[in-house]
Amino acid sequence: MTAAAFPGEVRDAAAAHALGPDYVRAVGKVVVSHVRNELAGAAAFDEPAIALAPGPKEKWLACRIAMEEYGHHLKFQRLASDLGLGEASHDRALSVFDYQLTSWAEFVVLKALVDLAEVVLMEELLATSYLPLRHLVVRLLPEEHFHVSFGKAHTRELVTDPAALPLVQRAVDDLVHVTVPFFGRSVSVNNDAFRRWGVKQRTNDEARAEWAGRCRQFVEGDLGLRFPDVDRHWNG
């Protein structure tokens, strides 16, 4: 079956199971990746950022964002449970979450660039064949957009200080480098299945290129900094 061969919409978990284990496996992998990543992101970046915030306002914003990311984790977990997938949080998170956050500057650049990767992946799910996932993403995307706009606004603020430019540039270089694998390998059996079942529409490389293009526009256009070369192909 090709991607175009499955134009349907799957209304709930029972309908997903009625389509068979291949469909459940495909949609389940996507849901579980969000269960894992939202939790890992909240724990590795958003919670530590509360202590790195330079002032009370930033601290409260970091609190709100951390709680939203944790809430996203719980909502994706509920979707996973509905599909009968059980507890998914203990699986290994992606390598981007190994990044050691040491400064507020890194945190705001991270929200601008790494959360944009999450936005790119979620936007694609607005057309996913699994309707409970589509509906959840409709609810969560405004919050994810806020996280990115928060990161962009605070990064723009930082670069008004020439002394901060090297720190921001280094954060951009490091974070772009660790986010490239976030979209998966160019040759991906999983992505083939996602597209075959209409869970996703794009290849991993297409999603990576979309993210890199939007990041470049922000980093070069808005910040006036250098955006590192990103090869749309990645195979580990």
């Binding site: 409260w60 709100r64 806020f146």
Partner: peptide, 19 residues
Amino acid sequence: DPHDDADVDAHVASGARLW
């Protein structure tokens, strides 16, 4: 919950109250 997802002030207040 901040009623407006783009309202920065509402997010600051919400974060402070959650804390």
